[in-house]
């Protein structure tokens, strides 16, 4: 886990990591959220809507924003204030995502950083964009 303190963070700093979305994660997410929407749970339905298979829950993909802030940027001293997210492409089970955040702004008064995040899949297609306001406690 990274342990960046506010003073060590600079605008332009980048951190990232990669994950593979698994079947097990889909099952666990369903258990936790009870989101039974067929787009995420029924292969035939997903195909009928133009997808090659079930679409991964957007919020499961977005959950990795928590990891980005809490483990990588800034890591240990993170306190997420807000997250704006756009889902720009479908994610499927087995996709490997690269999640990368860049510090675009700092506020010394509140010790807050603004991090822009881009997630791409194994084909370098953008699947999620986000802007996070994170306190460095």
């Amino acid at each position: 886990m990274n342990e960046y303190t506010y003073d060590r963070i600079e605008v332009g700093m980048k951190e990232g990591f990669s994950v593979r979305i698994t079947e097990e994660e889909m099952t666990k997410f369903l258990e936790i959220t009870k989101d039974v929407n067929p787009l995420h749970n029924d292969e035939d339905y997903a195909r009928s809507k133009g997808h090659k298979k079930r679409v991964v829950f957007g919020m499961l993909t977005a959950a990795y924003l928590s990891t980005l802030a809490g483990v990588y940027l800034p890591g240990k001293y993170s306190l997420i204030h807000s997250v704006k997210t756009k889902f720009s492409g479908a994610v499927y089970v087995g996709d490997e995502l690269r999640i990368e955040g860049t510090v675009v702004e700092k506020n010394d008064t509140f010790k807050i950083i603004i991090v822009k995040v881009v997630m791409v899949n194994q084909n370098q297609e953008k699947v999620c964009k986000a802007e996070m306001q994170i306190g460095v406690i």
């Binding site: 204030h81 807000s82 506020n107 010394d108 008064t109 509140f110 807050i112």
Partner: peptide, 24 residues
């Protein structure tokens, strides 16, 4: 509290100044 932070940050930008957290 979060909107308060947004207000103060916007004012710092608009008036090109920095505030001290204690005075805020």
């Amino acid at each position: 509290s979060l909107e308060h932070i947004s207000l103060i940050i916007s004012m710092e930008k608009e008036f090109d100044m920095k505030f001290d957290i204690k005075e805020v």
